[in-house]
């Protein structure tokens, strides 16, 4: 089956192509160094295996001596 796109549909497609081309030219813009670093941090998570590796290491360690520190955990 063939479709005959309407003029409005063609206009939308043309607009989308222009937006994509403009995005390719300008790329991503960051207002500050901090914003740039935050974007980088957001796409750079720690490797998933690190948590398991740490858990194995902690299992070989003696438990901490005092428990009063627990109230500070979530600060």
């Amino acid at each position: 089956m063939t479709t005959d796109p309407s003029p409005s549909r063609l206009g939308q497609q043309q607009q989308a192509r222009e937006q994509a081309a403009a995005q390719q030219q300008t790329g991503h813009t960051f207002a500050s160094v901090e914003e740039l670093l935050r974007a980088d941090r957001a796409q750079t998570p720690p490797p998933p295996r690190l948590a398991a590796r740490l858990r194995e290491s902690l299992a070989r360690e003696p438990a901490p001596r005092r428990r009063w520190w627990q109230r500070w955990w979530r600060r």
């Binding site: 813009t29 500050s32 740039l36 796409q43």
Partner: peptide, 12 residues
């Protein structure tokens, strides 16, 4: 002035 990158993958 804003900082620009074309691709986020080049950011790091």
């Amino acid at each position: 002035t804003p900082l620009r990158v074309l691709e986020l993958k080049e950011l790091g």
